[in-house]
Every structure is written in C-alpha cells, then in structure tokens.
Design a protein around this nucleic acid. Structure first.
Length: 557
RNA sequence: GUCCCAGUAGCUCAGCGGACAGAGCGGCUGCCUUCUAAGCAGCGGGUCGUGGGUUCGAACCCCACCUGGGACGCCA
C-alpha cells in the first residue's frame, strides 16, 4: 500500500469520526484530494478538503481543518497534523518511519517502485510502426522512446504489457516500394532504363539496398516474369528494411514482443470479418463504386472510404481490422497507440470505428507525439521525412549517444512540440542533465566500491542515525518513485520520470556535499554504516528510475 | 473554412483548480589537504498570448480573439 493511500485513509476516517462526535455536520465524504505540497513547511502531504467542504458544511474552512486535526489517528507513519490558513490540513511524516524505509527499499531491491495499480490487467502498447519503406528518423524515435518507457512503467505498475510493432506490409505504398526496390536492383545491374516510379521512394538507402540485393541474388530476377520478380524481390527488400529498423531501434534500447504483419489480417480472414461486421451493423454504404464507413452519422465530421472503387482496401480499413484483432481476438483490456502528429486526423475516426464495432472507445488510448525540431546552435533542421530532409535515428545516436537521445525525448510532454538541442545533448559536463543524473549514480557506486575495498560491512547499519536534513530529504525523494509510477500508469505521461530523476540526483548531490560517508574513525563507524545503507538504497532507486527510462546507470564516469 | 496541439523567466520546458509560479541552460558571486568540482551554495530574471466569464480561489475550467505548428486524399 502506498503511503499516500495510508494518509488518504486516515483523513477519510477522521472525517467520519468527527461527524460521529458532532464536530462536523453530516455530509457525504468526498475524495480527500491529497497533494504533495511544494513547500516543505507545509508538510509531506496536504489536503484542501476543508476549503471544498466549507459551503456544504456551512463552516469556515479553517474551522473544518481544525475540527479534523484531533481525529486524524496519530502514530506511525504520521508525525504531526495541523491546520493552516486558509483551510489546509497538513500532514508530516515521522523521521522514524522515514528512516525505516531505507531498510524497506533495500529489501525490495530492484522491485522498488513497483505498484499494484494494473492488477494484472493486460495492456498493449503499439508504437513506432514505421512503414518499412525507409529508415527510422528522429520523429519516429521520439515515439519509440516514449512507447518503450511507457511500456516499462506500465509493467512496473502491475500491468501485463505487450510491446508491439505493426508492420504495414500490404497496401499501395508497399507496391510502390517494391517497384522502387526493383528499379534500384535493376540499376545496380546496369539497367539504366529501369526507372523509379513517379511517386516512388528516391532515398539513397534504396540505391544501397538495390546493390546489396544484386550482389546477393545476381540477375536472376531480371529474367523472371516481371510481376513475380517484383513481388519476390520486394519481399526480400522488405525483410532487409525491417532488419535495419530493428537494429536502429535496438541501439536506443527499444525492443518488441510482437511484430504484427498487416498481411496476416488478410490471410487469416480477419480483414473480411471486420468489414463484414461493419456492414452487418449498418455502418457502411456503397457510393461512387467504393465502400464507405458512415462515420458522419456516428458523430465524425465526414464519411471515410474503406474499399476503393478499384477494390483495394484503404489503410484505414485494415487498421480497423487490426484494432478489432487487438480487442476481440486478443482481448487486451487496454490498448495504447502512439502515433505521429501527422496521424492526428485519424484519431476520431478510429475511435468512431471502435464504437461502430461495439468496442468501448475508452479502452483505446491514442497518444499523438508532436514534431521534433533539431537545433544545432542557431540552426534549425526540421525532422520530417516528407520535407525531404531525413535525419535518421541512426545519425542522431551516432551524434549524441543512446542515453542522451532517450533522456531528451522523454523530458518533454508528448503533445508539446520540442526542440532537441544537439549541442547540449553532446556536452560532456554537468550542463547536460543526462550526465548530471548519471554522475550521481557513478558517485554512489564509487562510495560503495571503496567501502568494499576497505572491507566495510554495513548490513547491520542502523538507519535511525540518519537525522540530517539532507539525509531525510533524500529518503523522502526516494519514496516518491512508486507514486510517479502509479501516476504515469494513469496519465500515460512518462515525462515526469526524467524530471524526477533530476530531483533525485539533486537530493543525492546535496547529501554528498553535506554528509561525509566513509570514515576511518571507529567512533564514526555506526554513522558510516547507516549512511552506506542510505547510499545503497539511493543507488537502487536511481538505477530503477534510469532503468524505467531505458538508460544506463554507469558505475564510473 | 473545420478540427487537433502549443503559447509560462533571455533560451528550452515543467506545473494544469488551491498556500508566495518552478527546473535546466545562459549571466553574476562564493566553495576543492578529505568518498569523482561531470558537484554544492547564493544573486539576478516572469502583465503565466489577449479580453471576458465560472469559482471562496484560475497559469490550470468555459467562451471569444491573436500568434506558431499540424491535420483535413478512393496516401499512409
């Protein structure tokens, strides 16, 4: 049970008790609305409940707060409860309880930070899903980092998480891709007359791919029947593109449990079944030779084509089948999609489609990750594939490294457009928040390393000796991790994590500056051992936080 | 024209119904005989885009407008 839940319950009980004894009039007990006040003067927790209750109770807010104080059960973990103008109820945790949490953190080890929020419910996080027609660029990378961190955090919060990449290996764009691959392959074999289609993929990476395929397969596809050659060579090209995408993503620690093929929806009949169900529910109409989803009648701003007059299904149609598969075939309790800003217009119609299929759209959470602008000094480079200026993920990792890449992408809310400052990310100094956080971990590791070299044992250390403000502040900060995990699982906004990591590092650096840990003085041995416990616990929490963010926790720097 | 996102310190961004609006970078001052100064402490810096409204209380909710970005295709 999280400490905030304990406090919440104590206050709720206090209201009931106060009412029973006539100190407060009768009314329904609302949510306690517990805050973590910014100012330490206001305690560890604060409730503005009395302010909200004033009208209902017909009492002054401060009087309500004062009436509640004597009814909040005293004793661990609460040290003090008091009313503060204009009507807050403040709660301070007891130092003794805080000290004991050090042993608790050590006992939990790598599991510290876990919560039972998810209760084992299943959640799928589908992210990146870049069309395998080109390399991963920095805009996709933001979604990749966001998705993997969200997945890590949801797993920590007790959800059964599936990380999934949707491979668009069907549809018109792939036909164009296959034709482009074939042209580059033929060109690599000296056939200058083979041209990239009008709207084909012209990136240099396909020239390279064409040469590789030519080297591997020779000219046998040139003598084959054209249609079959394009299909077979295209399939080989697709797998190579996917390998490249997989490799690029692995460099920033992004991995998937499932690579779901769009084609499988057609092969298994699930696509037909989804369309048939929409038709059966009366959500479609034939018009101008095409099959339309009548989304306008369901509240969307317009209808959308499902099957073109050519008989070709649209991307939207197979995506509906895909989402039906997530909810119906695989029964995920929740589904989280992370899409780029250019898919924003797709959100409403997908939710509308779910409703048309009888699936509660509330189970589908779509996060739109906004554009990334790369900045190098004063110069700005738009990171968008369609403007022609491709800045690949691979280039970015070469430039700034995986950890900086992850930290900077994570530090911004998904819905905010962001600037990625390459200069700052590359700086190997404390100006760079990445190093600031990792340096704290390396400093901790250094202390523990030296303690071991001196054969110091600290498993019998007594945390009740930790009374310095910096020591208690560090403990308090450590204990916030599970609250952040829980909150991120609800808000799906992991950008709180890097901010928390920086705060935790600050708390440690302050402690480090004020409290010497290692000592050769026998008289100081008990305090040293207590501090070693604290330091080890801090290392556990910092490493876990970095782990959730997919970043490394260096032993030395 | 319609829809979505953003507008908070010189810059990049947190905060999104409560107690004097925060951090990092940049600027200025101090602090290394002792566990890594990739650190710590301090100073300076803001009509929270504008105008209304709701509320005991608004950066946060509602309405209108302004600015920037994105989306409005039988592309994905």
């Amino acid at each position: 049970m999280l400490i905030r839940e304990v406090i919440t319950q104590r206050i709720a009980d206090a209201i009931t008790a106060a009412q029973q004894q006539g100190a407060l009039p009768a009314f329904d007990v609302p949510d306690v609305a517990l805050d973590r006040p910014q100012d330490p003067e206001h305690g560890d927790f604060a409730s503005s409940l009395p302010l909200r209750l004033a009208k209902q109770a017909r009492m002054a807010p401060l009087a309500i707060a004062e009436a509640l104080v004597p009814h909040v059960a005293a004793g661990d973990p609460i040290d003090r409860v008091w009313a503060a103008p204009p009507g807050f109820l403040n709660v301070a945790l007891s130092p003794a309880w805080l000290q004991r949490q050090v042993d608790d953190v050590l006992a939990q080890g790598e599991a510290f930070g876990n919560t039972s929020t998810g209760k084992g419910r299943s959640v799928q996080v589908e992210f990146v899903s870049v069309n395998p027609t080109g390399p991963v660029h920095v805009g996709h990378a933001r979604g990749a980092v966001l998705g993997s961190t969200l997945a890590n955090t949801l797993a920590a919060a007790g959800f059964d998480v599936t990380r999934e990449y949707y491979v668009n290996d069907a549809g018109t764009q792939m036909e164009i891709f296959y034709a482009s691959v074939f042209a580059r392959y033929a060109q690599a074999l000296g056939r200058a007359d083979e041209q990239i289609p009008e709207d084909g993929y012209r990136g240099d990476y396909l020239v390279v791919l064409g040469k590789e395929l030519a080297a591997e397969h020779g000219d046998r596809f040139l003598s084959m029947e054209r249609k079959q050659a394009v299909a077979e060579l295209g399939a080989a090209g697709l797998e190579r593109m996917l390998d490249g995408i997989r490799t690029d993503l692995a460099r920033i620690g992004v991995e998937f449990d499932v690579w779901f093929r769009e084609r499988s929806l057609f092969e298994s009949g699930q696509y037909d079944a989804a369309i048939a169900e929409l038709e059966g529910r009366g959500a479609t109409v034939q018009r101008d030779g095409a099959l339309w989803f009548t989304s306008a009648a369901l509240g969307d701003d317009k209808d959308n084509v499902l099957v073109r007059s050519t008989g070709q299904p649209t991307y939207f149609a197979s995506d509906i089948a895909y989402h039906r598969n997530k909810f119906e075939e695989r029964s995920f309790d929740r589904v989280i999609d992370i899409w780029g800003a250019d898919h924003q217009g797709h959100v409403t119609r997908m939710k509308t489609a779910m409703r048309a299929l009888g699936i509660d759209p509330e189970r589908l959470h779509i996060i739109i990750s906004q554009l990334v602008t790369l900045r190098q000094g004063g110069d700005r480079v738009r990171a968008s594939k369609r403007t022609g200026q491709i800045v690949t993920l691979s280039d970015l990792v070469d430039e700034v490294g995986a950890d900086a890449c992850r930290y900077f992408f994570l530090a911004r809310a998904a819905e905010s457009q962001m600037d990625f400052d390459l200069e700052l990310a590359k700086k190997e100094s404390g100006d760079n928040p990445v190093y600031y956080v990792q340096y704290a971990h390396a400093r901790i590791a250094g202390i523990l390393r030296q303690a071991k070299e001196r054969s110091v044992r600290w498993d019998d250390g007594d945390p009740s000796l930790l009374v310095d403000d910096a020591e208690l502040a560090l403990i308090r900060k450590m204990l916030l991790l599970p609250e952040h995990v829980e909150s991120i699982a609800m808000t799906l906004a992991p950008h709180a994590l890097p901010h928390y990591a920086a705060e935790l590092a600050t708390a440690f650096h302050w402690f480090y500056d004020r409290c010497r840990v290692l000592s050769a003085e026998p008289a100081e041995a008990p305090l040293m051992k207590a501090r070693l416990k604290l330091v080890e616990a801090a290392k556990t929490v910092l490493a876990r936080t970095l782990g959730l963010m997919g970043m490394s926790a260096p032993e030395t720097m």
